[in-house]
Amino acid sequence: MAKVLVVEDVSALRQHVTRLLKEKIDPPPEVIEAANGHDGLKLFRTARPDMIVMDISMPEMSGIKAAEQIWQESPATKILFWSQYHREAYVREIGKIVPDEAIHGYALKSETDEKLIYAITSVLIHNNPYIDPLVRGVQARLQCKDQSLTDVEYETLQDVTAGLTDRAIAARRHISVRGVQNRLSMLLTKLIAGEDQHLRDTAGMEIYNPRTRVIFEALKRQLIDPDAVTVLDDDLNEWLAEEFDYEKA
């Protein structure tokens, strides 16, 4: 049974999350609670939970400070930040402290319970980083009406198409490298569902380069509009300029 630590200073909200966890997650996890970052850190050391739902603004020690400490001691800890702050700066700063091994998420308090459950499931069960699209300011889909991919998967598809490495995607999307790898494997499962596994078993060798094959599949299904890739490129260049001060000649 999974163990989840809820760190939140407002007791009503803390109990609300506890109830949600017990009622909506299957199988229901064991839930422990702490009222501030300091207590959360102490409880983490003794109880070793699988995942932490962490408020940011708390007395004694903020959620970010506590998470930094926890990640220092145990880099693979899954932490879902549950915050009232819509600012991308939060996601960016957290992205800076998240270790390569960790899976983390950023959910907003102003959003519905369903979204919180989705975020928890995503991080806890699917090992898939979740960052609320409202915070990330998701780029509009490029003439893609196919809804079979989630926004997050579509974003990863764009990054792969642009030729970014795992590290680069992690830096650009403010998630861990492991988070990127998990996203990628989700994408592969959806687009080339088991096909390559089957082929590999038959042929006794790797037939497809997964990244290229994903792009091929996406083109085939018209998930990517070849005419719209310039927009992808523009976005990428903007990020490069902002992040690394690199201006394309």
């Binding site: 940011i56 603004s57 903020s62 702050y85 600012r87 700066a89 939060y90 700063e93």
Partner: peptide
């Protein structure tokens, strides 16, 4: 009134 980002980040 009180920039939260300054406080937390």
């Amino acid at each position: 009134l009180c920039p939260s980002a300054l406080e937390h980040l």
